[in-house]
Design a binder for these strands. Structure first.
Lengths: 95, 95
DNA sequence: CTGATTTTTTATTTAAAAATTAAAAATAAT
DNA sequence: ATTATTTTTAATTTTTAAATAAAAAATCAG
């Protein structure tokens, strides 16, 4: 078999976290570099509370990290594995 | 922006479809070649009805296709994009 | 034709995810 | 200190997905 039970669980959690239109858009946006919550909200609409909750989902799945600056919170992609996955997605779904 | 609205929708649908432990395992299993519903059910447990429903989800997302032979239904991976995605997943999550 | 096998479909129940709204923290500005 | 800004958290409602069980199709074997 390709995956162990534990790898299946990890992969499922990551995939589930990025399987939402808003979260997928956020991840694409973060490919440009770190952004604060307001910038993300302005870019994609929805409410800032809703965006914040989606960011929490991504953060709990270890996909993004954040840095505080005054009362702004800057979010960015956490590791190069996620970037690699996004690049593959781009190649497969954006021709 | 990296994705258009429509590409986001397509990508989200595909990701959502594969973001389930049983469905992810089925896809791995199908990397070996086509299998019928009973073979999949035996491999991973659950009920045959449940497996059939998961296969329907994958089929509606255009990820797998099927071929009828008597009263057996053989399923297989539909395209190489999905295989490429699975290979990337393997590289990223199975080290 | 009858009964057995394989799979799908439908209906119901249960559980999880998403959106909305309101309230709460934390910091900054006056 | 008070007020405004930015973000998070919590509570509620709504929506969607999953599992289970039962019934229905389709084909095969006798």
């Amino acid at each position: 078999m390709l995956f162990s039970e534990c790898q299946i669980d990890t992969a499922t959690e990551v995939l589930k976290s990025i399987s939402h239109p808003i979260r997928l858009k956020i991840l694409c946006f973060l490919l440009e570099g770190e952004k604060n919550v307001g910038e993300i909200e302005q870019k994609f609409g929805s409410t800032i509370s809703n965006i914040s909750q989606h960011l929490t989902v991504l953060r709990k799945a270890d996909i993004i990290s954040r840095r505080k600056d005054a009362n702004f919170m800057f979010y960015s992609l956490k590791d190069k594995n996620i970037i690699a996955l996004m690049e593959t997605m781009k190649k497969l779904f954006c021709q």
